[in-house]
Design a protein around this nucleic acid. Structure first.
Lengths: 200, 200
DNA sequence: GTGCTATTTTGACGCCGTCAAGATTAGTTC
DNA sequence: GAACTAATCTTGACGGCGTCAAAATAGCAC
């Protein structure tokens, strides 16, 4: 917390993002109010509006950060075409951990709050689509070796990602899937994906 | 809209549920305010509190309705053990249509609003778990014929339902999956599930 | 210094969920 | 019928929210 005596904060935008991330993680979107946020940053209620046009814009920025992190995770995926299974299994585990570490952020990234109820920034839209494109490349049939022969890359990506995403949601929203079952179900999911490829 | 002259409404609870369902569908949880709702029912702002202890309770009731409908859908699933694929394919289509017909309701049923941020009613919890138990029974390995040999019923249900759920979320939240791709991806998902069983 | 612009503040508006106190009606018991 | 009780509904109020407008303050170029 920097000195509160100054009229100009000097680093408000970054401070807001940092504190907003904390509020989001600990209290969810509902608990993340611009007024609380301003107070935590030691600044008046309307000061944030000079750095984010409105709450929607702030949320977009937070979601954007999330996608950038997810990018790194996807880039880190390494599949051995001769035996892609261990690499895939690792990635699924990483992905689930990523989502479980900050569920509210994950919800923000993919949920209706921004994509339906809100107005996703052009920047956010771009980053999100980029992220998916990256994923499509990462699980390209060629990289899956003999398994991927002749499969449609886009379909493979969509179906596998849907499985992954579904697992996360079930887990995070705490319905139909307990934390203890995670490992087993995640393994089952990998088996599912690979088997699906074998059949195509 | 019944006569507004009477002091007692007479059918307020049902009216509230009906109007709330409309507000939910058209404006989402965000747009469903108790005050707007009361106004639409032709009643004062606090009248609803005599029928629902708070907004959370009202939302729980709405979600509950959704699960009852989903129950009927699951009960309607018919799988031929000799060839379960067409039945499964039909169910997946039905499920996606169910979710797509009222996305905000689906979000309410499975999302964080109630299960994490809110306090799910005991009644809701019961209905939701009942619904899943029904699903577990519906896709029991025996019903899948030779495919299901030796598979763990719970895992099969969790993994297949996660896939289904993931598809819905991707579709409804409008990210990474377009309406036109629905059919193709849904078919791919069925292939995935069946193939997964063949491998177990 | 003067002026320009970015930043921050206070004040206000309308919306929200919800509580408290009182008014009105329905239902039960005599 | 009357009296009482419980259910239902109303008005009024409180604090919190997002956001706009106008005024104050500070940094910066000249």
């Amino acid at each position: 917390m920097p000195r509160p005596a100054r009229y100009h904060h000097g680093d408000l935008r970054d401070t807001l993002l940092r504190e907003a991330a904390i509020l989001l993680r600990e209290h969810g979107v509902q608990g993340l109010s611009l007024r609380r946020l301003a107070e935590r940053a030691g600044v008046s209620r309307t000061a944030p509006y000079h750095h984010f046009t409105d709450k929607n814009a702030l949320l977009c920025a937070l979601a954007e950060q999330g996608f950038l992190r997810l990018d790194r995770l996807i880039d880190g995926m390494s599949l051995d075409p001769a035996d892609p299974e261990p690499g895939l299994r690792q990635f699924v585990r990483d992905y689930l951990r990523f989502a479980a570490e900050d569920p509210e952020r994950y919800e923000l990234m993919f949920g209706r709050t921004l994509w339906k109820a809100g107005r996703p920034d052009p920047a956010l839209t771009r980053v999100a689509h980029d992220c998916f494109r990256r994923y499509v490349e990462a699980v390209r049939p060629e990289r899956l070796g003999s398994l991927g022969q002749g499969a449609d890359p886009l379909r493979v990506a969509q179906a596998s990602w849907a499985t992954l995403h579904g697992l996360c949601r079930l887990l995070l929203d705490g319905i139909y899937l307990r934390r203890e079952d995670m490992e087993a179900v995640s393994d089952q999911a990998v088996t599912l994906m690979l088997a699906g490829l074998r059949r195509d």
